[in-house]
């Protein structure tokens, strides 16, 4: 069985480590890391991913812009996108979901919540 590919877009190395470490505990994912939206887009164009996890507040290109660009790409119309952010306001959540994100998780990081969402979106 081929490993599912996951892209983690997050400018904080600590946060990236936390997400990667958590994901590896539930499944043998092939995980690729990106520092910001532009880096994320570059990696998305190089290979096909099954899931994207992204922060919102990042330098160069933020997560919302990334979500909107990803959804405009025919190859990524349906790929699940999870946003993990410090922005807890309802309008931020609504905006992200309206742009095409499938789930919106607020920090501080709750590993169980992230893993449950990943399992739900990937149907396992």
């Amino acid at each position: 069985m081929t490993a599912l590919k996951v892209l983690v877009v997050e400018d904080s190395p600590t946060m990236r480590q936390l997400i990667v470490f958590a994901l590896k505990r539930i499944r043998n994912f092939q995980i690729v890391e990106a520092n910001d939206g532009v880096d994320g887009l570059k990696k998305l164009s190089a290979e096909k991913f099954d899931l994207i996890l992204t922060d919102i507040n990042m330098p160069i290109m933020d997560g919302l812009k990334l979500v909107s660009m990803v959804r405009n790409d025919p190859n990524y119309k349906t790929v699940p996108i999870i946003i993990i952010t410090t922005e807890g306001a309802a309008e931020d959540r609504d905006r992200a979901l309206a742009l095409g994100a499938n789930a919106y998780i607020t920090k501080p990081i709750q590993t169980i919540q992230i893993l449950d969402t990943v399992k739900r979106l990937l149907n396992f």
Partner: peptide, 14 residues
């Protein structure tokens, strides 16, 4: 920077 990241992301301080 790592200390700041831990406090934001793990503790949830603004």
């Amino acid at each position: 920077q790592i200390i700041l990241e831990i406090v934001i992301n793990l503790i949830g301080a603004e």
